[in-house]
Amino acid sequence: MSEQKAEAEVISNAKEKLGEVIPTPPEATPKASAQSLKERLQWGEPGLTIIDARDRESFLDERITGSMLATDVDNDNIPKNREIYIYSNTDQEAAEAADNLRQAGFESVSQLQGGLAGWKAILGATEGRSATAQ
């Protein structure tokens, strides 16, 4: 066996073992708990978008850190396969907003159960006027 083939085989074996060792983030589900979103964010480079489907005043007052206001989202600039977590004032409003995104062609939309209150209950980070006043 040539030296190049031997090196290629060593590299190939190492890659196979790394695939077994390196965990992958859990898959998104149609409904997600605040804790599951927090765990997903702890993966470092989550590759997801958090959308706030409440009104602008509520969004400006306090929101999940890094979230975007639904009315400001340009559906054409977000890849259809991007993981999206959406929340609102009630789970029903969030479900409707999630359904709208799915109908627009988004493949991985999770409705965040409990909304902002659920997020704050697990000490999730927030930002906005109220969050900075604390």
Rank of each mutant, 00 (worst) to 15 (best):
M1L: 09
S2Q: 00
E3A: 11
Q4E: 15
K5V: 12
A6E: 15
A8N: 07
V10G: 00
N13G: 06
N13W: 13
A14Q: 11
A14H: 13
K15T: 14
E16W: 03
K17H: 09
L18W: 13
G19M: 07
G19E: 13
E20Y: 08
V21L: 15
P25F: 08
E27D: 11
A28E: 04
K31N: 02
A32V: 13
A34P: 09
Q35A: 10
Q35D: 10
S36G: 02
L37M: 06
L37P: 03
L37E: 06
R40D: 13
R40T: 09
Q42D: 14
Q42L: 08
Q42K: 10
W43Q: 04
G44C: 05
G47R: 05
I50Q: 03
R54T: 11
R54N: 07
D55M: 06
D55W: 02
R56P: 04
R56K: 12
S58H: 12
S58N: 11
S58R: 07
L60F: 09
S67Q: 04
S67K: 01
S67T: 02
A70H: 07
D72T: 01
V73W: 00
D74Q: 01
N75M: 01
N75D: 01
N77G: 01
K80V: 02
K80A: 02
R82F: 01
I84A: 03
Y85K: 02
Y85N: 07
D91W: 07
D91E: 04
D91I: 11
E93Y: 10
E93K: 03
A94T: 14
A94D: 04
E96I: 15
E96N: 14
E96F: 08
D99A: 12
R102S: 05
F106P: 03
E107K: 14
S110G: 08
S110V: 09
G115H: 06
G118W: 00
A121P: 07
L123Y: 13
G124V: 04
T126W: 11
T126G: 00
G128S: 07
G128I: 09
R129Y: 10
S130P: 03
A131N: 05
T132G: 04
A133C: 05
